[in-house]
């Protein structure tokens, strides 16, 4: 099974590309983003590819600085990619958001990490949630606006009569994030980027927010790109997972395989570092890799495999040659010389 170099999107030739674009709501190909700074070029994202299929939750996992948020922002058009393609429903959208047609903007949205800073503190909840409705001309007058906002707030389980006219400052973290979700689904998008939607929240509140998200996905047939550093959470929400390290993806797998049979040493290191609650979980963790070292600088990423300075199994080839993807089992790909 390991002999051929495979593309994780699963399609290597041109005609297959077209097929991928049909099956998937979003296809990312050779996507790269470099930031020029006075210290040198930051290789935030380097030549990554993945696809998000209709109705699934695709998980993007990595530590801070691995480029997962940059990827999310490129998809949303906050950054223009340095090179590479982003194809959304068969349409190339690898440009900045201002150059995208309004219909595309209506069809995708994002929930940010920190609800405290993503909601304008001087606007009421009604104004915040109502804005996308007005911008996309979904409501004609104030009555319809009220009705629309009420429906959205109900969808995220916030009683409208209590929340409509409050300011974000009066809400708890979980409620703020619920408002951000209501805003994200206001235009009935089919694709939502969730950029660490619960990392600023307590576990008790996180569970509630995740439940709301899962319910909405069912009801509205949403596709999610779920960005997080929390592997236990990922285990429970994603259908397929990609692991990012220093701007590159090193392993792809369906969620259940990923946790039972992690292959890349970095994946194992991540998994073995997760603090857990039960002995059952403890025994499920890989034991042959212990966490060492720190993430290298993205300005001068290590040559070859970017993980080699921290990898306990690194050999000479890892320092020179970049590993290519091999298929371990169906839908499970890894980039590692081992």
């Amino acid at each position: 099974m390991r002999e051929t170099t495979a593309s994780p999107v699963g399609f290597t030739t041109k005609s297959d590309d077209k097929m991928a674009e049909k099956e998937s709501i979003l296809v990312v190909k050779n996507l790269t983003k470099h930031f020029k700074t006075s210290f040198g070029t930051v290789h935030a994202v380097d030549n990554i590819e993945f696809d998000v299929r209709f109705g699934e939750t695709f998980g993007l996992v990595g530590e801070s600085g691995s480029g997962k948020t940059t990827t999310g922002y490129m998809i949303m058009g906050v950054y223009t990619p340095t090179s590479g393609r982003i194809v959304f429903k068969g349409q190339d959208i690898s440009v900045h958001v201002v150059k995208r047609p309004k219909s595309i903007k209506k069809d995708m949205s994002i929930v940010f990490q920190d609800p405290a800073s993503s909601l304008n503190p001087s606007k009421t909840i009604k104004e915040i949630v109502g804005l996308p409705l007005k911008v996309h001309g979904l409501v004609k007058d104030n009555v319809e606006l009220n009705k629309g906002v009420e429906e959205l707030l109900e969808a995220v389980e916030l009683p409208p009569e209590r929340f409509m006219d409050t300011l974000p400052g009066d809400l708890g973290g979980g409620e703020k994030q619920a408002v951000a979700i209501a805003r994200a689904i206001a235009t009935h998008p089919s694709f939502v980027v969730l950029d660490e939607p619960t990392s600023a929240l307590d576990v008790s509140v996180q569970a509630k927010v995740i439940k709301t998200l899962m319910k909405l996905q069912q009801e509205l047939k949403l596709s999610y790109l779920f960005i997080t550093h929390d592997l236990s959470l990922m285990r429970n929400v994603a259908s397929r997972v990609a692991i990012m390290y220093l701007g590159k993806i090193y392993e792809y797998a369906p969620a259940h395989l990923f946790f039972h049979n992690p292959v890349h040493p970095y994946t194992k290191m991540l998994l073995s570092s997760v603090p857990v609650l039960t002995d059952e979980e403890e025994t499920s963790k890989p034991r042959d890799v212990k966490s060492t070292g720190e993430v290298s600088s993205a300005i001068n990423p290590p040559p070859g495999c970017r993980f080699h300075p921290r990898c306990p199994f690194a050999t000479t080839i890892c320092k020179v040659k970049e590993p290519e993807f091999v298929m371990i089992e169906p839908e499970h790909y890894v980039a590692c010389h081992l």
Binding site: A207, R235, L277
Partner: peptide, 22 residues
């Protein structure tokens, strides 16, 4: 109990969390 149940597990399994807030 609520806190423990709200924490997502590596082996799968997830609850509804605790409603309300501090």
């Amino acid at each position: 109990k609520g806190l423990l149940e709200s924490t997502p597990r590596l082996t799968g399994g997830f609850s509804e969390g605790i409603g309300g807030r501090v």
